[in-house]
């Protein structure tokens, strides 16, 4: 089982947002996507999920565009950068929306949502009105919704997060990474776009560095996080500190 991108290109009006990109999104693995603004990280996620149609995206050996939308929705959950929810739903109601692709019945759905609420410590937010929550609280509810979508069968799930930690405070960032580690340990494939390279290095099993729509490097944190790759992708010089297994970087100057 895997979600594989093989030489995937995606262009709009002659500009390549992705150019011959190959990435393996594997079960029981946290893949972090890093790269400068406009590198194609979000485009990669949207292509991998089948939203943007491109040749070479295979889910379990089958072209993803051949798989029906509702079947895809049972396996692939995607937390986008911004949800425009403007209706006074309760937190719990928003999380229940994650169950929409499933025809598993109200009792089962309620149990799934309750488990997620417990696991993610969302009890205090579940009865609050979504539109009155802070940005970070909204994000936690949305993360909960994404989990509800795939909670039945984590082993065959692909969970994609586009910059999930931007609105979260330190403690909730840590909670988020604990959650995705738990998802990984249950067998889920997790892909997460991160701006903080040190968080990627600390928590990812595989890091993919993107720049200008191309993959510069893919591998474990120790293989990928070095002055060469980071300099090429971000145009900054860095010092690496910490363990060689999960390096920590410190930015020195703009190159």
């Amino acid at each position: 089982m895997s979600l594989a991108l093989r030489n995937v290109s995606f262009e709009i009006d002659g500009t390549y947002l992705l150019n011959q990109v190959s990435v393996d999104i594997r079960p029981a693995c946290i893949t972090a996507l890093i790269g400068p603004n406009g590198a194609g990280k979000t485009t990669l996620l949207r292509t991998a999920s089948g939203e943007l149609v491109a040749d070479g995206v295979m889910l379990d050996g089958q072209p993803i565009s051949d798989i029906a939308l509702e079947v895809r929705a049972q396996r692939i959950a995607f937390l986008t950068q911004s949800s425009a929810l403007d209706f006074p739903f309760t937190g719990l109601e928003v999380m229940h929306m994650g169950r929409i692709p499933h025809l598993t019945g109200a009792i089962h759905d309620r149990r799934m949502v309750e488990e997620v609420v417990d696991k993610c410590d969302l009890g205090s937010l579940s009865q609050r009105i979504y539109t009155t929550l802070s940005g970070g609280e909204k994000q936690r509810i949305q993360i909960g919704r994404i989990l509800c979508q795939v909670w039945d069968d984590l082993e065959s799930a692909y969970v994609l997060f586009d910059e999930p930690t931007a609105a979260l405070d330190l403690a909730h960032q840590l909670t988020f990474f604990n959650i995705i580690q738990m998802l990984r340990d249950c067998g889920a494939a997790v892909v997460v776009v991160l701006h903080d390279i040190n968080l990627a290095s600390k928590f990812a099993d595989q890091i993919c560095v993107l720049a200008s729509g191309e993959v510069l490097a893919t591998g474990s944190p120790s293989e990928v996080i070095n002055a060469g790759n980071i300099g090429k992708a971000f145009g900054v010089s860095i010092d690496t500190l910490g363990s060689s297994e999960r390096p920590i970087i410190q930015v020195r100057t703009i190159l």
């Binding site: 999920s49 939203e51 939308l69 509702e70 079947v71 895809r72 929705a73 049972q74 692939i76 959950a77 995607f78 986008t80 911004s82 949800s83 425009a84 929810l85 403007d86 209706f87 739903f89 109601e93 928003v94 929306m97 994650g98 929409i100 692709p101 979508q149």
Partner: peptide, 20 residues
């Protein structure tokens, strides 16, 4: 009704919930 709930999240989000 369920699809209307989903679409309040956004067109993109609704599509990720399996809705055309």
């Amino acid at each position: 009704r369920h699809k209307l709930n989903a679409i309040t999240l956004g067109d993109q989000e609704a599509a990720y919930l399996g809705i055309s």
